[in-house]
Design a protein around this nucleic acid. Structure first.
Lengths: 152, 152
DNA sequence: TTGTCTGCAAACTATTTGCACCGAG
DNA sequence: CTCGGTGCAAATAGTTTGCAGACAA
């Protein structure tokens, strides 16, 4: 079953409606490799139909997240990012607190961890939305103002 | 060495100054069990000195985070939370995407994972700031708009 | 038809920033 | 005395919301 059919079906099951706006937002996410902001999605959608409003994009993103067809990432930079689930293998991210660098990491190795958390805490981890914060090798090796300067 | 002495020393080493405002913010965090928002810290501090501004609190929180004396958590609800490092054993959190429930989990079991990421990706994970998003047992068992029909 | 969805515009709010004065070192 | 720190106030900006009309089912 195509992703659009899945979408339509899930909507129907819950009494939601399938609108062109929702189809367009899903299509953009489906076509996009990697993370996208709501703003970027909005621009893509306006490419097709210029009347679509950003608030509709937000509402649709909430819906798609709820249906678990996309995953939402909040990197803490004040701008959420979204990603189509199934676009690539399940993965999580490493985010450097200093330079903001983002590394994508295959999540298969976290399956054991996730299973453990499920059993131990009865909590269903969404591996796709996980972000590990810390310091990348580069920033860890070059601390800002090691002993004198504090230029940032 | 007390936490205040550590603080004073770290500031000196970097050419920063020790001000009453900074001492107060640190004291509040030191006394507080669990997560606090900047707003809550601000209120506590104003209890002592009513002239302290929230922007100073934010600037101090950035500084303390940089010095790794506190850890910053962004749960994605538009409000960051802070926590004194060493207040309790290193831990991470499980955040339910639906009900917002937060569970604190001892991080010792993640040490292996963290070591792995360090070796494999040369990335220094900050375990204390980690949040696993997903669904708590309760919400997973009671989906929203729950046509409570199928209870397999 | 009917009740959901949308566009519009205004609101929200946590956080940031410019600036002139203040005070720690 | 210096120049980093602070209070004040205004700006920022992503996201949310109220509402009346539009439209999928």
């Amino acid at each position: 079953m195509s992703c659009e059919e899945t979408f339509a079906q899930q909507l129907r099951e819950r009494g939601f409606r399938l609108t062109p706006q929702r189809e367009m937002v899903l299509a953009v996410l489906h076509q996009t490799e990697g993370l996208v902001t709501a703003e970027a999605i909005h621009q893509q959608v306006r490419h097709i139909s210029s009347a679509v409003d950003i608030s509709t994009v937000y509402r649709t993103l909430d819906l798609l997240t709820e249906l678990q067809m996309i995953s939402m990432l909040d990197l803490g930079d004040g701008q959420r990012r979204y990603e189509f689930v199934g676009r690539s293998a399940l993965h999580h991210h490493l985010l450097c607190n200093r330079c903001g660098g983002l590394t994508r990491v295959d999540a298969s190795q976290l399956q054991l961890l996730s299973d453990h958390i499920q059993r131990e805490f009865n909590f269903e981890v969404d591996l796709g939305s996980m972000t590990f914060r810390g310091l990348c090798g580069n920033c860890a090796a070059n601390p800002p103002g090691g002993h004198s300067a504090h230029t940032e």
